[in-house]
Amino acid sequence: MNQTLYFTDKKLNYLELRYSKSNNCYKEHIHNTLSIGAILNGKRIYTNKNKSFILQKNQLAIVNPSTSHSCNNNSKTANRLYMLYLSKDWCFSVQQSIFPNIKGFIPFSNELINNKTIYNNFIKLCELLFSNSLILEKETLLIEFFTSLYVKYKQEIKIEINDNSIINKIIEYLNYNIKEDISLYDLSKEFNLSTFYITKLFKKELNIPAHSYFINLKIEFAKDLLKNGLSISQTALECGFFDQSHFHRNFKKILAITPKQYQDNFVQ
């Protein structure tokens, strides 16, 4: 039987933790968070941009923000797994405490960490977050874990020096117009770029087509609305989907659960 549980807390509003027992498959998708995943049993096929890995116990999957990825079961046995999503701004604050001279979030060059100790510490962190422990204890262990992670892998963190201001401006525009049905032609007019160039830009920088990226942004926005108790029909409208079935189909395709199943974790 498939099962999905979420942990969130208003005092830890920079994170979301998902536990699932599932053999569902996910379409390639993106998050605007740093995402870290671990499975407790079996194996999964983990893709990150153009790379593919067999993810198993004692490994962590690392997914940088706005990175196309998937993690799908390759057997009929349901996997148990944790997926932790962390605000890019919060991660930057932790990084800056270690590397004071950095000016912005630093992505990991690792897509996969093979380290039993770090894996076990991550599992303990996830178990603690789902427990009834004090917020202070949860936050302390979270900071300790990420501080140790960045210190451990500081030589394997890359600082991106490419000028990606154009793609960032397009992303900002899409976020601002999240309710709209934006076309490549709209983007072309707004940024004085050819539709062909924009298509290549999304493939090069994000490894995901522009329309798929925009759908992902809408789903990320929808998650926040559902968490705050907005009805599914109103959420679909606020996110600019054609109708509720269109919203339902895309939500399930990306998250492998329905909007109602997702909302039931937060709204009682």
Results as ranks from 00 to 15, higher is better:
Gln95Glu: 03
Ser93Lys: 15
Phe92His: 09
Asn120Ile: 09
Lys116Thr: 10
Phe122Asn: 05
Glu127Asn: 14
Thr117Pro: 04
Pro100Lys: 10
Pro107Leu: 08
Ile118Glu: 03
Phe92Tyr: 14
Gln96Trp: 02
Gln95Ile: 04
Phe105Ile: 01
Asn115Glu: 05
Leu128Tyr: 11
Phe99Asn: 11
Gln95Ala: 01
Ile106Arg: 00
Ser93Ile: 06
Ile106Leu: 03
Thr117Lys: 05
Ile106Glu: 00
Asn121Val: 01
Gly104Asn: 10
Ser93Gly: 11
Glu127Val: 13
Ser97Arg: 00
Lys116Asp: 08
Leu128Phe: 12
Thr117Asn: 08
Tyr119Ala: 05
Leu112Gly: 04
Lys116Met: 07
Phe92Thr: 06
Asn101Ile: 08
Ile106Ala: 02
Ser109Asp: 11
Ile106Pro: 02
Val94Gln: 02
Phe108Asn: 07
Ile98Tyr: 02
Ile98Val: 07
Leu129Trp: 05
Pro100Asn: 13
Lys103Met: 03
Lys116Tyr: 04
Cys126Lys: 13
Ile102Leu: 00
Leu125Trp: 09
Ile123Cys: 11
Asn114Ile: 15
Ile113Val: 15
Ile102Gln: 02
Cys126Asp: 14
Phe130Trp: 12
Ser109Pro: 10
Leu128Asn: 06
Pro100Leu: 14
Ser93Ala: 12
Leu128Ala: 11
Thr117Asp: 10
Gln95Asp: 01
Lys116Ile: 06
Asn121Ile: 00
Ser97Thr: 00
Pro107Met: 07
Phe108Ala: 11
Pro100His: 13
Ile106Phe: 01
Gln95Val: 01
Ile98Cys: 03
Asn101Pro: 09
Asn101Gln: 11
Leu129Gly: 10
Gly104Phe: 10
Val94Trp: 02
Pro100Ser: 13
Phe92Pro: 00
Ser109Gly: 12
Cys126Glu: 14
Pro100Ile: 14
Ser93Asp: 13
Phe105Val: 00
Gly104Tyr: 08
Tyr119Pro: 02
Ile98Ser: 03
Ile113Met: 05
Ile98Arg: 01
Phe122Pro: 04
Ile123Gly: 14
Ile98Ala: 03
Pro107Val: 05
Ile118Thr: 00
Ser109Phe: 14
Ser109Met: 15
Ile98Leu: 06
Thr117Cys: 05
Val94Ile: 09
Tyr119Val: 04
Thr117Arg: 08
Asn115Cys: 03
Asn101His: 12
Leu128Pro: 07
Leu128Gly: 09
Asn101Arg: 13
Phe130Ile: 15
Thr117Ile: 09
Glu127Met: 11
Gly104Ala: 10
